[in-house]
Computed example of a mutant assay.
Amino acid sequence: MQAPISFRATLLILALLPALDACVPALLVTGTAATMISVHDRRSTGNQADDETSEWKGSNRLPAEYKNHAHVNFTAFNRNLLLTGEVPSDEARQAIGAMAEKIEGIRLVHNELVVAPPATFSSRSNDAFVSSKFKARLLESNQLSANHIKAITESGTLFLMGLVNEREAKVAVAIARTTDGVRKVVNVMEIIPEEETRRIDNSLLGARTPPPLAAPVETR
């Protein structure tokens, strides 16, 4: 049974709220691409910008012979690059993976491309909805910030990227596995010590501008 439109819209809004709240007003422009930099992201602002640039380079360097016969997504997080989507042959899969490995600044490429016909618009829309449901449930759990996890769904397979500690990774995987519409979970999150996540989070909170002092109130 398909969820009511209002419910679907609510989930989409819930999933987007953390990202919207975490963006600073300034735009960072790299080449012809403009992106918002999050002050709540555990990645450095430099790595955030590099990730956006890497995704742009991947899309633009896709070999011409595959552009009309493949559906490829390039998702970068902390200089790790995830390739998802469908390609016409294993040769195409290997060629695109080799191209991705040559993108400047990328440390590791996760080539999760599959040999299959390109996903339909309906399938891609459903995948986006599955990702939004996961993000909404992550937000509702109140166990870790949704800003620390990037979710990408392809044909029901939910890929998780992020910079998290072991406890947070377990929470994210548990929520992903029980999200409606998820057929399989692929964990490509980068695990760092809990002390390091605490240090980064404290530095991010310390960098925020403190709220102005409240004005005094006189009762007469």
Rank of each mutant, 00 (worst) to 15 (best):
100 A>D: 02
41 D>R: 07
45 T>W: 12
84 T>I: 10
60 N>L: 07
41 D>Y: 05
100 A>M: 02
125 S>Y: 13
49 A>S: 14
90 D>Y: 11
120 T>W: 13
79 R>C: 01
112 E>M: 09
68 N>Q: 13
115 V>W: 05
98 A>D: 15
127 D>L: 13
79 R>S: 06
132 S>I: 12
92 A>M: 02
121 F>C: 14
132 S>M: 14
70 A>H: 04
128 A>W: 13
110 H>A: 08
61 R>F: 04
117 P>T: 10
109 V>T: 05
106 I>Y: 03
42 R>K: 11
119 A>Y: 10
98 A>M: 09
70 A>M: 08
68 N>V: 09
111 N>Y: 05
61 R>G: 00
116 A>Y: 12
94 Q>Y: 10
95 A>V: 06
95 A>H: 12
50 D>S: 14
67 K>Y: 03
108 L>V: 12
99 M>T: 02
57 K>W: 08
44 S>L: 07
31 G>C: 06
52 E>Y: 12
103 I>F: 00
76 A>K: 05
116 A>G: 11
73 N>L: 07
105 G>T: 05
56 W>G: 01
37 I>S: 00
127 D>K: 06
47 N>Q: 14
56 W>S: 14
82 L>T: 04
107 R>Q: 15
56 W>F: 12
36 M>T: 07
122 S>F: 15
83 L>C: 09
96 I>D: 00
48 Q>I: 05
108 L>W: 14
130 V>A: 10
46 G>D: 08
89 S>D: 11
73 N>Y: 07
38 S>I: 05
129 F>C: 04
64 A>R: 13
115 V>G: 02
83 L>G: 06
38 S>P: 01
62 L>Q: 01
39 V>F: 13
43 R>G: 05
42 R>G: 05
126 N>T: 12
70 A>R: 03
120 T>E: 11
94 Q>N: 11
37 I>Q: 04
55 E>F: 03
127 D>R: 07
113 L>Q: 03
106 I>L: 03
34 A>Q: 13
55 E>H: 02
98 A>Q: 14
85 G>W: 09
39 V>E: 11
121 F>M: 13
94 Q>H: 15
131 S>P: 02
50 D>K: 11
78 N>A: 09
72 V>S: 04
108 L>S: 15
87 V>L: 02
91 E>K: 14
35 T>R: 12
46 G>A: 10
125 S>T: 15
107 R>Y: 14
109 V>R: 01
55 E>K: 11
87 V>G: 03
36 M>S: 12
103 I>A: 02
40 H>F: 11
62 L>W: 00
54 S>T: 10
102 K>L: 09
81 L>V: 06
100 A>P: 00
105 G>K: 09
50 D>Q: 10
